[in-house]
Amino acid sequence: MRADAKKNYDQLLATAREVFTEQGADASLRDIARRAEVGLGTLYRHFPTREALLEALLRSSFDALAAKARELESSGASDEALVSWLQETIAFTHEHRGVIAPMMGAIEDPESALHASCVMLRAAGASLLARAQADGNARADLDGSELFDLIAALAWLREQPSHAPRADRLFSVITDAVLVNRDA
């Protein structure tokens, strides 16, 4: 990549991170290009879709969450590992306002730029769930896709100002429903 193209790419990512933090994942791409002081065509040359831009922004975070899941698989009690990872994943989606809807769409769309990252994230959670199930710590009738749906539901709830105060309590209710042999 030419030096000027690399500079534009980095500037677009930095600006997109700021704008998405301020306005959420539905922020105007035109606004991102304007604030990055590049043309809209330059943005689309680097990121042909909103999902491609989101994927570039979120890839390192998705990789970190997957690595955290692998780390938790070999440490501590399986139920505690699952709860810890769920908390981190929900916190991540809350920090990246509006990202849950594109993630949920992408996981079902193999053509989406976010698809592979979302599938990897779901697989990481499914692996922790399977470990907890094998240890007898999680209900056996739940799968990784359903766990990902629960994460999405709880993350969406945190994004709603009128419901956010109940999010922590509902997280506890959900984890109590997922985990078995757990003292309340």
Rank of each mutant, 00 (worst) to 15 (best):
A69G: 00
L58G: 09
R17Y: 09
E18L: 14
D26S: 12
A56I: 09
D26T: 09
V38D: 09
L65M: 04
E73M: 11
S28A: 05
D135G: 14
L40D: 11
I107D: 08
W156C: 08
D31V: 14
L128S: 09
R139P: 03
A138V: 03
M104R: 13
P102W: 07
L150M: 15
T89V: 08
W156R: 10
L154E: 13
V119G: 02
L72Y: 04
L53F: 05
I90M: 11
R45G: 07
F62T: 05
L157T: 02
S127W: 00
G98T: 00
K68Q: 14
Q133N: 06
A124H: 00
S117G: 15
T89H: 09
I32P: 09
A134F: 04
A124D: 02
Y44G: 10
V38I: 07
A116F: 01
V119W: 00
A152V: 07
L65D: 05
L142Y: 05
P102L: 13
L157S: 00
I90F: 07
A52P: 01
R34T: 11
L147Q: 00
E37C: 11
E37F: 14
A152K: 10
E22I: 13
R50Q: 13
R45F: 09
E159D: 12
L54G: 07
S145M: 10
T21E: 15
R17L: 10
D135I: 02
H115K: 06
S84C: 13
G41K: 13
R17N: 06
R35P: 05
S61W: 02
R59P: 00
E73I: 04
R45Q: 12
S74I: 03
E146C: 09
P102S: 03
R45A: 12
M103T: 05
A69I: 08
I90Y: 06
E18F: 06
